[in-house]
């Protein structure tokens, strides 16, 4: 009987270590570099941050937290946050919702998926809401509905514009029908704000879908979008499952919506502050004619 491994090359510790995975790949910590899945380049985080979280090579707009956005859009130190005491709880005893909420809070560092408040843009006073992807993908539950409704009611009373950055996977399933009702509730507040002659500008960001698209996202006097953002009522996967065919390239992206006539303009992130300032200026009662 032959001994097993008779003709095998003897083990060489040094050779083996040379092949080790840890040595074969360069070690890149997550907080130093990011990978752009669009142009396949590895980029420094600092470089991307300085460029408004836009890829300096291919101009892909990366997701940005609600706080960062407020920092980018509003004048420094002008932001006054509202309704921070409102937090979600498990209203319909939905299994696992408490843990979901805890995880979302930890991941995003926020108490809910929307931040509301007021501030100035180029000196023009406005109220603003910004949704955050890291909190349950910006889903709309009762607190999101309540915060946005209150903001519109406040803006109506104070005769202020509302600027809204939308980002959402839709109504929050874990709060059942109560989430769906927020679509009507927020729309009612938008209508009152509008009927009183106030300005509402929405900026649709990636992704804006479901119940948010079918309510306050599409109710702006002026509807702007970030480049290549996914915007739609039904998500692409749901549509593919329904019609059993592949969707065309670029379907439901900002450029597609512009072509179909559903957004006023696509505005790159670096230009948004100036763009919004100019809109506010044109609607300002203080402007000298």
């Amino acid at each position: 009987m032959l001994r097993k491994g008779l003709f095998r090359k003897p083990k060489n510790e040094l050779e083996h270590r040379g092949m080790d995975q840890a040595f074969a790949q360069p070690f890149i910590p997550d907080d130093v570099c990011i990978f752009c899945s669009s142009c396949k380049n590895t980029l420094f985080v600092t470089e991307v941050k300085d460029n408004n979280y836009v890829c300096p090579v291919c101009s892909t707009h990366f997701k940005v937290s609600a706080r960062e956005r407020i920092h980018m859009i509003l004048d420094d130190g002008s932001f006054d946050e509202f309704y921070t005491d409102l937090t979600s709880f498990n209203r319909i005893d939905f299994p696992g919702y408490e843990e979901k909420l805890e995880n979302a809070k930890e991941e995003s560092g926020e108490t809910e998926s929307v931040i509301c408040g007021k501030g100035t843009i180029g000196g023009f006073e406005t109220t603003i809401f910004v949704m955050d992807s890291k909190f349950m993908m910006g889903s709309m539950g009762t607190v999101v509905g309540e915060k946005i409704t209150r903001l519109f009611e406040y803006a109506t009373k104070e005769k202020l514009p509302v600027i809204g950055y939308t980002l959402s996977g839709g109504a929050r399933m874990q709060e059942g029908i109560l989430s769906l009702m927020q679509m009507a509730k927020t729309s009612g507040a938008v209508k009152r704000h509008s009927d009183a002659g106030n300005l509402y500008v929405t900026v649709l960001t990636d992704p804006t879908t479901g119940g948010v698209t079918a309510s306050f996202a599409m109710e702006g006097d002026i509807i702007l979008a970030e480049p290549k953002a996914l915007i739609g009522f039904a998500g692409p996967r749901v549509i593919e499952q329904t019609i059993r065919q592949k969707l065309p390239q670029g379907f439901q992206r900002s450029e597609f919506l512009l072509e179909k006539g559903f957004v006023d303009a696509i505005v790159e992130r670096k230009d948004q502050k100036i763009y919004l300032k100019n809109i506010l200026a044109l609607h300002s009662k203080e402007v000298l004619l």
Binding site: T213, A214, A217, M218, G232, F233, A234, V238, I239, T242, I243, L247, P248, F251, Q252, K260, F262
Partner: peptide, 12 residues
């Protein structure tokens, strides 16, 4: 949920 429904603005 379909292509035409989206093209004609179901959400809106």
């Amino acid at each position: 949920c379909g292509i035409e429904a989206e093209e004609r603005g179901q959400g809106l």
